[in-house]
Write a protein that binds this DNA or RNA. Structure first.
Lengths: 218, 218
DNA sequence: GACCGGTTCATACCCGAGTCGTGGTCCCCC
DNA sequence: GGGGGACCACGACTCGGGTATGAACCGGTC
């Protein structure tokens, strides 16, 4: 896990709290957005805790860039920062916790995000719903997955190890089309190639179902 | 899944048995080695069941060639064919089941191989160990992980989404070396490309504990 | 010493992957 | 009806991935 906040005291406190959770290892701390991005790209933590006061190009942009590296962003908010929080969730953040949250709730929340769930502090869900209603009609579905259905389908087949030709045959389209979907999916997720895409998908959609990896025509 | 055996009756029986496993789809049957290789290259099944009586250049060669196409070979043996079986396992086969095996055990065994495990019929493990002892001193460690330390290290970096150039920089070797290790690792694991390798590594080194995906120093 | 396997590296080659630009369709909004 | 903006589909192009081959060095075993 990576911690990013401009308050050193808060970072220290988080580190101390998380020390009680042996399954959550803090690998690094960052004081600003630049450092967070560098560390996330290098260390590839599963979770990145981001304080809403972090200095940089802006929280939503930071969340987008961090998410692109494959990490899951959990926001650390303060009173009155609801607007930022909503925008950050739109940008792909997986959770929001108030800085006054109890240690137990914080740890449980991070674990929930690790399991693929989304964590929302009760103190802001009302505001969140309000913003979502008045925000955009489409919704963009950015809270879960920024990919369209087609891109998602292609990505899942990539994550099964199929080549573009095999995916094309499976989806009854041309190779060029598959490549196009993958290109867009890679850009939206901030990934580089199909290998990172496969890793990402296999990390988000946890295993457990009896799924067939081969080119079986189903 | 691809079935290859010279006994048509046996093939039909296997197909019938496997029909009860909805996650295991038989995509084709072959009666000899040539047909098996052609079908495996074309359909790229995850599993190929090979009868030890299959006509062709020889079982070990067939296993090697099939493995090269990316499929995982499970052998179907008969009494007295222990020697062939050992050689075939050396050649990269992932499992061995006796033709008199029960339907349940067969299905479970194939699923185990799909999970990356190795399946060995209890009726031949004794003979196998004997052959392994008297065979080569090295032992080849084909039961768990057929990769050398270097190949393992490269594979793990592939599984983190790094490019060959990045891996080369990380390990202080040339790109050519990285490519060489990857080529060998792919062949030994019976995989096709770095994407499948990444999936494989991420599936074998299971999560669950407080694992950190990045190259965290500690 | 001969042999074998692992590691390292270079060169050359083929092919798949990924990008880019284009065109079509649908839907929403003015 | 005419933009505008998505998503989808596709072809041409460039580049990195993967293989093949050959070679050198080192550490073991026969």
């Amino acid at each position: 896990m990576l911690i990013c906040d401009d308050h050193e005291v808060l970072r220290t406190g988080l580190r101390a709290v998380l020390r009680w959770a042996p399954d959550l290892v803090v690998v690094a701390e960052a004081a600003d957005a630049d450092a967070a991005l560098t560390l996330a790209a290098e260390l590839r933590p599963e979770i990145t805790l981001v304080g809403l006061g972090t200095q940089g190009p802006g929280i939503p942009e930071l969340v987008r860039a961090l998410t692109a590296t494959g990490t899951r962003v959990v926001l650390l908010g303060e009173a009155g920062s609801g607007g930022d929080m909503v925008e950050a969730l739109r940008a792909g953040a997986r959770g929001y916790v108030h800085t006054t949250v109890s240690s137990e709730r914080l740890v449980d929340g991070v674990r929930a995000v690790l399991r693929g769930e989304t964590l929302l502090d009760a103190t802001v869900t009302g505001e969140l719903l309000h913003h979502l209603d008045g925000g955009r009609p489409g919704g963009e579905a950015a809270d879960r997955n920024p990919l369209t259905a087609r891109q998602q389908a292609v990505s899942e087949l990539v994550a099964e190890g199929l080549t573009n030709a095999e995916i094309a045959a499976r989806l009854q389209v041309s190779r060029a089309t598959v490549k196009g979907h993958i290109t867009v999916a890679l850009r939206r997720l901030g990934l580089r190639d199909r290998t990172q895409l496969a890793i990402h998908v296999n990390r988000v959609t946890r295993p457990g179902d009896g799924r067939q990896v081969g080119p079986a025509n189903g």
